[in-house]
Design a protein around this nucleic acid. Structure first.
Length: 397
DNA sequence: AAATCGGGGCA
DNA sequence: TGCCCAGATTT
């Protein structure tokens, strides 16, 4: 039996969070917020949402923008396929003259799946549907004391959640009802130590009745993340600009600018000599101290940095571009920014110049480094293989 | 069904 | 540190 919708909606009317995207119901703004909030906390989205809207005020502006502008605006938010799909969907919406107003129509746009189509349909267009996100899954698992582990239990939880729309009071306010579930999950029915005493549905919760609310939902254990190593090449020209390239459009950090480097391989760290074969051009590369660490969802990365100045009269290699350092800091994904920080521990200024030793190695120039991070060979390698590593000083996150 | 795809916030 | 987050897409 589902708990009564009026009790949740009354609570929502009194306690709902004031959030930037809870405004007049502009579908563009609601869609943007939903995409930005995919696997991303409200706290992280807050400032970025306003900034994005200021730069792309409506779907036509976003559709007309070049990819580089969208990528720079999304930099640091992660899951860059969202930005690519957002851009493509904006162009589709602009071309057809507006957003589809049904769940199925929205679902056909790139980057809009089961959750986002339901959320936009309910919040922007008042369709009677229940978007099922992590909050709703948790609330539902507790209300009905579902002990099957996620993600296997997902279809069952989604079906239970949809059952709320059988109540006419919920059907009358689908957008508010959805957001009430979000707020309940975010502020009361939290992952740890839920505040059941404050819950508008206390007395209707099977998990609380059984005293197991703290341990639901059950989640399947996560696989261990493998460790990979990379060596990157920071080249500055006479005016201090940096040599960058774009990553391949698919895959890790797809379509984003990067500091050129070796592939990210499992096993041993790159030696300097070994890595030089991947240099964008021949120069007097110097290995900087320090290791930049960055964790992705399914792998962990340790990168080191070689730096050089553009040799006098050297041709700029194909497939690269120059960007000022300040602009690069804003446009690079976080992993690359962390790498860049190795070159400027103080945060500003060029690399402290050391008189070049004549040890610089002549190197093959120009070889087009179409580097894509190898799509997962075997894993399960023992963690933390004792690298043939230099000093393990790492940058602070 | 399982893998891939980021990074910030917070105990 | 590990866990979580207004998930989607590909394999």
């Amino acid at each position: 039996m589902h708990p009564p919708a009026p009790e949740l909606l009354d609570w929502y009317d009194r306690h709902r969070r004031s959030l930037p995207w809870r405004g007049e119901g502009d579908p563009y703004r609601i869609w943007l917020s939903e995409v930005m909030l995919q696997q991303t906390t409200v706290a992280a989205v807050g400032p970025r949402y306003a900034r994005f809207l200021a730069r792309f005020p409506d779907v036509e502006a976003l559709a007309a923008a070049p990819w580089e502008a969208v990528a720079a605006e999304w930099a640091g938010l992660g899951y860059y396929a969202r930005a690519r799909n957002l851009h493509a969907a904006a162009q589709a919406v602009a071309a057809r003259g507006g957003f589809p107003e049904t769940e199925a129509g929205l679902r056909a746009l790139p980057g809009i799946g089961a959750y986002t189509s339901a959320a936009v349909a309910a919040i922007a267009f008042g369709r009677p549907t229940v978007p099922v996100d992590g909050n709703v899954e948790r609330v539902t698992a507790r209300l009905f004391d579902i002990r099957d582990p996620l993600p296997a239990a997902r279809p069952r939880l989604a079906q239970l959640a949809r059952g709320f729309m059988e109540q006419p009071v919920a059907r009358a306010r689908p957008g508010d009802f959805a957001q009430a579930l979000f707020d309940l999950g975010a502020t009361i029915c939290t992952p740890r130590r839920p505040a059941c005493a404050l819950c508008p549905w206390r007395g209707h919760c099977a998990a609380q009745a059984a005293g197991v609310q703290d341990s639901l939902p059950v989640k399947a254990p996560k696989p261990v993340r493998g460790l990979r190593h990379g060596m990157h090449f920071l080249l500055r020209d006479g005016s201090g600009r940096l040599l960058l390239r774009h990553r391949p459009p698919q895959g890790l950090l797809g379509g984003m600018p990067e500091i050129p480097g070796t592939p990210w391989r499992e096993g041993a760290a790159w030696s300097e000599a070994e890595a030089l074969a991947h240099a964008p051009l021949a120069a007097e590369w110097r290995l900087l101290p320090g290791v930049a660490r960055h964790g992705f969802t399914h792998l962990e990365l340790e990168m080191r940095l070689l730096t050089a100045l553009l040799p006098e009269g050297a041709p700029v290699p194909e497939g690269f571009f120059w960007l000022g350092e300040a602009e690069a800091r804003g446009a690079l994904p976080t992993a690359m920014g962390r790498l860049l920080a190795l070159a400027a521990p103080g945060g500003e200024g060029p690399v402290p110049q050391v008189p070049p030793t004549p040890a610089g190695t002549g190197l093959l120039a120009g070889e087009a480094p179409a580097m894509a991070p190898r799509a997962t060979p075997a894993r399960g390698r023992p963690r933390g293989a004792p690298g043939s590593g230099p000093p393990k000083r790492r940058t602070k996150p």
